[in-house]
Amino acid sequence: MASPSRGPATIGLIVASALVAAGMVVWFTVPDTGASFGWFAYAPLADQPLFPFIIHGQRLVAAGLVVVALIIAGVVVGFLWGRRVGRVETHPGPDPFADPEAG
């Protein structure tokens, strides 16, 4: 039996962790320059962007890395949970197709 530390689940968790770390590094090292939207029919009321919540550029890449990492982690957790549930030994009940008179 193979050690669980060498299985595909461990590799998946390592990859997911690396992607989360890369996403966090990119997110926090990119300067926040604000989005450029081009032409406006009116001047904004302040010096801040009109839509400050829009993610753009390299921060979008960072968010994408984290989303991919979460998907990989979800697949790994589902895989491990399925293996664990599959190993649970269940005691079969009465056979519904057995002949009651044969007993």
Rank of each mutant, 00 (worst) to 15 (best):
P8G: 10
M1E: 04
G82K: 03
R84S: 07
P8N: 08
V85Y: 02
I71P: 08
R87M: 01
L19C: 03
R83V: 01
V85P: 00
S3L: 00
H56C: 13
V88F: 10
V30C: 14
P44Q: 11
G74A: 08
A35W: 00
A16L: 06
G78K: 12
L45F: 08
G103R: 13
H56Y: 15
A9V: 05
L60R: 02
A21C: 00
R83Y: 06
F97H: 14
P4S: 09
P49V: 00
A69E: 03
H56A: 14
I72T: 11
R59G: 01
V25Y: 07
G78L: 08
F79I: 13
A41W: 12
A62G: 02
T10P: 08
S5R: 10
Y42K: 15
T29V: 04
G64L: 01
S5L: 14
F97G: 14
A62H: 04
F97S: 14
Q48K: 15
A35M: 11
E89P: 04
A22M: 03
A73R: 07
I71T: 14
I72C: 07
G57N: 10
A2Q: 04
G7R: 03
P100H: 09
F28N: 07
R83F: 12
A35F: 07
V75A: 10
D95W: 10
A21W: 00
V15D: 02
L19A: 02
P100V: 13
P52E: 06
I55V: 06
Y42L: 12
A102G: 14
V20W: 04
F37C: 12
P100C: 07
